[in-house]
């Protein structure tokens, strides 16, 4: 968590307005990708649709991959982390990584993965 601040030595204005936000069309394309991914996710539920989803591990791996990509797309494009000062992203990622690590250990202590 703390690494987010240790590197913060920006003394100069990072001009927020200097870059152009992407056009609406880019946003729509991102949304289409998100929609497509959601569609694939839902397909895994219908096991008969795609035979290899009968295997639980394949399903879970696919779902987790798609989830992470969706998460990433929303955070980077819609939440502008791509364009913004990296400090913002660090604050968020600090919480995200810490939460993931702590709660994975927490679930491990309950032998959740067994």
């Amino acid at each position: 968590m703390t690494d987010t601040v240790t590197e913060t030595h920006l003394e100069h204005d990072e001009d927020h307005g200097a870059h152009e936000h992407p056009s609406d069309w880019v946003y729509i394309k991102i949304a289409l990708i998100l929609a497509l991914f959601t569609g694939i996710e839902v397909l895994t539920y219908f096991e008969s649709a795609l035979p290899f989803f009968e295997n639980n591990s394949v399903t879970i791996a696919t779902l987790m991959f798609l989830m992470v990509v969706k998460f990433y797309l929303v955070a980077t494009w819609f939440m502008h982390l791509r364009f913004d000062n990296p400090i913002f992203g660090r604050m968020f990622v600090a919480g995200l990584v810490l939460a993931t690590a702590v709660y994975c250990i927490f679930l491990s202590a309950f032998e959740f993965w067994a």
Partner: peptide, 22 residues
């Protein structure tokens, strides 16, 4: 006043605030 010129007290309080935050 770069981060590494801050007094230790400010540093420790900053770490404390992060701990509280999370």
């Amino acid at each position: 006043m770069s981060l590494f010129r801050m007094p230790i007290l400010t540093w420790m309080l900053l770490v404390t605030q992060f701990l509280l935050l999370f």
